[in-house]
Amino acid sequence: MIENLRTALAGARFELRVLPRSPGDLMALVTAPVTTIVFLAITQHAGRHDLATYAVLGPALMALWSMALMVCGEMIDAERAGGTFEALVATPARPLPLLAGRIVVVVTVSLLSFAESWLVAALVFSIVVPVPHPGLFVAALLATVLAMAGWASIMASVFVLARSARIFQNSLSFPFYVLGGVMLPVSQLPDWLRPVTRLVFLSWSSDLLRDSLNSVGVRYAVPRIGLVLGFAVVGLLIGRVLLNAVLNRSRTAGTLAYA
């Protein structure tokens, strides 16, 4: 357990060093403020000041998902392309804690998009979005980071196991923006689609975050946080199975590295 924790910390330190030197991986943090401006401009022009919360929260959640999908999803493949994956596998360090440590850093850094969105709203539109339930807001963010890390480890493995899945990687953004309640609450979606959204952890996260910005009381906050954490555990468990499958298949087929 302690060894795994140390490995995760080593992965986190590594990512903290690499990420600031990889501008392409931080592109979502560049687009988040711009998207916020677009969304707020539309809602304000339409006179829907009540939608300012959605316009601020949406771009931040989009950045969160985008970095998990593009940066974390590429992690194993990038190691293979860089010729480092074989040497990594040949070390005594367990791959899942290492990957998880790196992913948590990426997802945590993507939280900067929340600060960006709030700042843009305040500086460009003079709109201050209050956070009436700061404790719930922070707890929901932390749970979301962990759930995102778990599911990012699945994506990282799937994109190696099924090469064809990468074809859909770019198109996985907008369906999840809808199913995850990123752009608008899932309660606004058609009835037949709602059960599907409940299988996407992001829909629970976005509802919680949105509720934490609402001045009325929040119902079932703790069980809902627990559910998001449950998604995190399930994600990590599936990620572990898939990562082992990646390693076993690659060691058998000789495909740990690209030629």
């Binding site: 060894e3 140390r6 490995t7 080593a10 330190r13 590594f14 060093r17 990594l88 005594p92 360090a93």
Partner: peptide
């Protein structure tokens, strides 16, 4: 940094 990282992977 490369060597430190690899060292950390060996514990």
């Amino acid at each position: 940094q490369n060597i430190e990282y690899w060292g950390s992977l060996y514990g």
